[in-house]
């Protein structure tokens, strides 16, 4: 038995070694680097909060901006993916359901950098979106404005990330025992009520996991804010790239990295706390 375990661990070891060496080690370096003040001439290296103070004084507004954008985009992803899943589960019009199923998956494998380029032209002042609105008589082309700011970043994030969340959410909805839904229908509940009070509570775990993963993904995207969010304020990933490429300032970049890890950690912690609380009740 002991020998067999040794063989098993040997088979897994190279893969684990790769993650340890190329992710966990640099991750540790980054977390420590956030508190490390690098030697400057005569002054030796030391531990302190200087990097964080500098990060907040330079980029405090960007930190808030990032929280706002990623939170808004996550909420929208949640709402739309529940809407898509609900429509697929409850609509009962096979042609419409098939069309929606075929449509919503398209952005799934389209990389963020391509989404950035698409939205850069689509959302521009004279892009396809404003042109369509103008053709429908909704706006006037000469006074129209573009969306290449925080709104553009949110639109790009939601466009791309909803496909992933909707895939998981509609999968969970399809696996539900349909008898509870039929019971609700028999009692005369509206589709909205069935969705909100019967379906969503049963797929809450899947929904939360997909939203947390979406939150972290959007927090880490560099290309979209660089391509769409021109001007200030901007997202923290852009500031981190700038600290490295412009100043080789690893301290502030790592402090910003620590702050984004803390945000991701907070979201995961809120979820786990909620899950434990509900686990205790059942």
């Amino acid at each position: 038995m002991r020998e067999s375990r040794f063989v098993s661990m040997t088979l897994v070891a190279p893969a684990l070694f790769l993650v340890a060496g190329l992710f966990l080690w640099p991750l540790g370096k980054s977390l420590i680097g956030a508190f490390l003040i690098e030697p400057d001439g005569e002054v030796a290296a030391r531990i302190g909060l200087d990097n964080f103070i500098k990060a907040f004084s330079l980029y405090g507004q960007d930190v808030l901006f990032t929280v706002g954008i990623v939170t808004t985009a996550t909420l929208l992803v949640g709402l739309i993916s529940v809407g898509i899943g609900g429509y697929i589960t409850l609509c009962g019009r096979p042609v419409m359901v098939a069309a929606l199923k075929w449509l919503y998956r398209w952005p799934l494998f389209i990389p963020f950098v391509v989404v950035g380029q698409m939205m850069r032209t689509f959302l521009a002042k004279n892009g396809f979106m404003n042109n369509s609105f103008e053709a429908m008589g909704l706006i006037d082309g000469f006074t129209a404005s573009g969306y290449l700011d925080w709104r553009g970043i949110i639109i790009a994030f939601v466009w791309k990330q909803t496909a992933f969340a909707a895939l998981l959410v509609s999968g969970a909805m399809a696996a539900l025992d349909r008898s509870t839904i039929e019971a609700g229908r028999d009692l005369g509940a509206s589709p909205w009520r069935i969705l909100g009070q019967i379906i969503v509570p049963q797929i809450k775990t899947t929904l939360m996991v997909s939203l947390i993963l979406s939150f972290v993904t959007m927090l880490s995207v560099l290309s979209v804010p660089m391509m769409i969010g021109t001007g200030t304020p901007t997202m923290m990933t852009v500031d981190m790239a700038w600290r490295i490429n412009g100043y080789s300032d690893y301290g502030v970049a790592n402090a910003l990295g620590f702050i984004s890890m803390a945000m991701a950690g907070t979201v995961a912690w809120i979820y786990l706390k909620q899950a434990v609380k509900e686990g205790g009740q059942n």
């Binding site: 375990r5 980054s30 984004s260």
Partner: peptide, 28 residues
């Protein structure tokens, strides 16, 4: 095969996709 802490090993491979990665890339 039987492996100790199997779930933990599975989750280890998810870590690179489940952490904000820009700071890690900078340090790599």
């Amino acid at each position: 095969r039987s492996l100790p802490v199997r779930t933990l090993i599975m989750l280890t491979f998810l870590i690179p996709q489940a952490f904000p990665s820009v700071a890690v890339f900078i340090n790599i």
